[in-house]
Nucleic acid binder design. Structure first.
Lengths: 227, 227
DNA sequence: ATTGATCCATGACGTTGGTCAAGTGCGCAC
DNA sequence: GTGCGCACTTGACCAACGTCATGGATCAAT
């Protein structure tokens, strides 16, 4: 049973905000609305995709389990983000697994509903391409970070992206626990912890799950520092 | 002026092989066919995309130049691969730059031609999503590799992907120079060189731009080795 | 208050890969 | 041939990060 707030978030999601009103209403009416507790699995890599997913609240991680059993976090999604479009529309199998990392509300749109809509109105296909492109772009950005930045720089950039000011100071909330943040950044929790303490020198204070950035420009400078 | 071989490659590209014949012919007739010498730039990150690209011959790299001036190679494409779909269809700006790393033949399809086709036949949109999904998938695989494998394992996996047998022995050709291979794998040329010599112990011989893998299963084993 | 669980910080140490510098092998122009 | 340039290799050294072990802080249950 979706409430109005949830519907509003859905309407403004990357996936739907460009669609004409009557399509949106149709999708909302055919969607499945579900609550997930913390650490529930939405799907596993290798499963066949039958729906696309829009996060209404909470945090969902996409991750891969590697041949030797360790876990690589690929993305972490939150309110307004959608995922699984490209896979579901082709009836392919997921290349990643998905799990809630906090209690979450997620809306599922059955793939056949969306396919039907695309065939009737090709504009919808372009909308979905747009959102898929966002994912492409964010993966490209992650690759660049991993290849060209040190762990410390990645941590700093992560903090800067949480607050979205570009000068002055700001206080941001760490959205999920530090093990996951470390995973998202491709480092171990211990390294994250050390990176945080090294960032003190650049005006960053970590207090529980909050970070105070005293001088945004100074930190930005550190991220962009040549080698 | 395309020759028949080039047209045949285009027809079997990821992007077009699922399209009905008459659409393919139309796209081929509207396409721009171009030769690039080595090290020519196709486009730069930040430029507005006006076409999608299909590689007919040679190798094209996509890369990002970071704030501190260093370069991160994101993808390397060859015969039959297409790129730029999601960007061109939305008239967005490229998140990466593209450059030929060998002399290459590339076919460009103007975005407006493709958009027109999608609006007339939504099936085309799904085809493009399929090819975009391939890119997504390969980026996800790269992320996993960077986060969960050592440089040596990445090098070994790269060699295994070049030959596509899964047992016995095989001889593969290194498709482009070692500086670029190193970039693609997120390491420095020196480290690539050292990785190669360490792989001798696993039956890999490097000779100029060829690699002999004496025992594919042994090497696969090394890649999948638990930590 | 005590226990245990969970999450995080810190220290000691090992390994990986980057950096810098020198050297090798090969192709090519003359 | 000789000389030069380029791609690659090798070695010595160092910084960054992972690993392993320990200990503190917080919270809930008893």
């Amino acid at each position: 049973m979706p409430n109005e707030l949830q519907k509003e978030i859905a309407r403004t999601s990357t996936l739907m905000r460009l669609l004409p009103e009557q399509h949106v209403e149709m999708l909302l009416s055919k969607a499945i609305w579900r609550h997930y507790d913390r650490d529930e699995t939405l799907f596993l890599q290798g499963e066949e995709a039958t729906a696309i997913h829009i996060v209404l609240d909470g945090w969902i991680k996409l991750y891969r389990v590697t041949a030797n059993g360790s876990e690589a976090v690929v993305s972490v999604f939150t309110r307004g983000d959608s995922f699984g479009e490209a896979v579901a529309l082709r009836n392919l199998t997921y290349p990643v697994s998905a799990q809630s990392v906090t209690a979450s509300e997620v809306m599922h749109i059955p793939a056949n509903v969306l396919v039907g809509l695309i065939l009737r109105d090709a504009q919808v296909g372009l909308s979905i391409l747009a959102s898929t492109f966002n994912h492409l772009h964010s993966l490209v950005a992650q690759l660049e970070q991993l290849k060209a930045q040190t762990a410390g720089q990645r941590v700093a950039e992560f903090l800067l992206n949480l607050g979205n000011s570009d000068s002055g100071s700001c206080r941001v909330t760490l959205p999920y626990d530090k093990v996951l943040i470390a995973g998202r950044l491709g480092i171990k929790p211990e390294s994250l912890s050390r990176a945080f303490s090294r960032l003190k020198a650049f005006g960053v204070e970590i207090d529980k799950n909050h970070a105070n950035i005293h001088n945004v420009k100074l930190l930005r400078n550190f991220v962009d520092a040549e080698k």
